[in-house]
Simulated assay, not measured.
Amino acid sequence: LRQISQRTISTASRRQVKNRVPEMQKIFQEDNGIPVHLKGGVIDGLLYRTTMALTVFGK
Rank of each mutant, 00 (worst) to 15 (best):
N32S: 04
D44L: 03
A12W: 03
V56Y: 14
P35S: 04
L54F: 10
R14A: 04
Q3W: 03
M24G: 11
M24I: 09
A12N: 06
D44I: 06
G58L: 04
Q6F: 12
Q6I: 10
V42I: 07
Q29L: 14
Q29K: 04
P35F: 03
H37K: 07
A53R: 11
T55C: 13
L1P: 15
R2H: 13
S5C: 06
G40D: 00
T11P: 04
L54T: 12
L54Q: 12
Y48H: 05
V42A: 07
M52S: 09
Q16D: 15
I43V: 14
P22T: 00
K18M: 10
P22F: 00
R7K: 13
D31N: 06
P35W: 05
L46E: 11
V21C: 09
M24S: 11
P35A: 00
L38E: 01
I27C: 09
F57K: 06
M52Y: 09
I4W: 06
R20A: 10
I4N: 01
R2K: 11
S13W: 15
P35G: 01
E30Q: 02
K18T: 10
F28A: 00
D44A: 02
G58R: 09
V21D: 05
I27Q: 01
I43S: 09
T55E: 13
L1V: 15
V17N: 03
D31C: 03
S5T: 09
T55L: 13
P22N: 00
K18F: 06
M52W: 08
M52E: 10
V36S: 11
P35N: 02
K18G: 02
L54N: 12
K26C: 08
T51L: 11
Y48A: 14
K18A: 05
R14Q: 07
D44Y: 05
L54A: 05
R14L: 05
V21W: 11
G40L: 00
Q6G: 11
S5Q: 08
V56P: 06
R20F: 05
A53C: 04
S13Y: 12
G58N: 02
R14D: 14
R49Y: 13
K39Y: 02
S10I: 04
V56E: 05
I4G: 01
I34T: 05
A53Q: 11
E30P: 04
F57S: 07
M52F: 15
G40P: 03
K26E: 06
N32V: 01
L47S: 15
M52D: 10
Q3I: 01
S10L: 03
Q3S: 04
T8K: 10
R14C: 03
E30L: 03
Q25C: 06
T8Y: 13
E23H: 04
I43W: 09
Y48S: 11
S13G: 14
S10C: 07
R20G: 14
I4K: 01
T11L: 02
T51N: 12
E30R: 01
H37T: 10
G58T: 07
M24F: 12
L47T: 09
I4A: 04
